[in-house]
């Protein structure tokens, strides 16, 4: 599955331009330090966190996409940073558990 297919399947709203990348796995966390320690390259990061640092941490571990839950959005500075890092960021009204369920149903483990 790619980030584009993922967005279509989960009906995610894009906050950045689309950067189509392969998705391999998912990591759910609201802690930057936890993302650095445990997320893997290619993962979709599901988070409530909208601080610039979450983009910098996601970039460091090279996640394929970020899904912001509960309808939250990113400040323009963070959107710009994500675009420069070519990390697509999406938002959804679902909470993290609902997103996790949908990702599981979509075959992402």
């Amino acid at each position: 599955m790619t980030t584009k297919e993922l967005a279509e399947r989960l009906e995610l709203k894009g906050l950045t331009r689309m950067f189509e990348k392969p998705v391999s796995g998912v990591y759910i966390s609201d802690m930057v330090s936890d993302v650095i320690a445990n997320a893997k390259a290619g993962n979709v990061l599901v988070t409530l966190q909208v601080h610039n640092n979450v983009i910098a941490a996601a970039n460091l571990v090279d996640v394929s996409a970020i899904v912001i839950t509960r309808g939250r959005t990113l400040p323009s500075e963070a959107i710009s940073l994500a675009e420069r890092a070519e990390i697509p960021v999406f938002t959804t009204g679902m909470d993290s558990w609902q997103v996790a369920s949908r990702l599981y149903e979509a075959g992402i483990r």
Binding site: K21, M31, V32, S33, I36, K40, A41, G42, H51, N52, N53, A56, A57, L60, V61, D62, E86
Partner: peptide, 30 residues
């Protein structure tokens, strides 16, 4: 660990005296 083509991470020692100036939000901690 990087999988994005041509992307590189370069971590540098603090020759910029950021430690003296650092504010909480700049650091990749929580």
């Amino acid at each position: 660990r990087l999988t994005t083509p041509n992307k590189k991470i370069l971590i540098l020692p603090d020759y910029f005296n950021l430690y003296k100036e650092f504010s909480h939000g700049q650091i990749l901690a929580d």
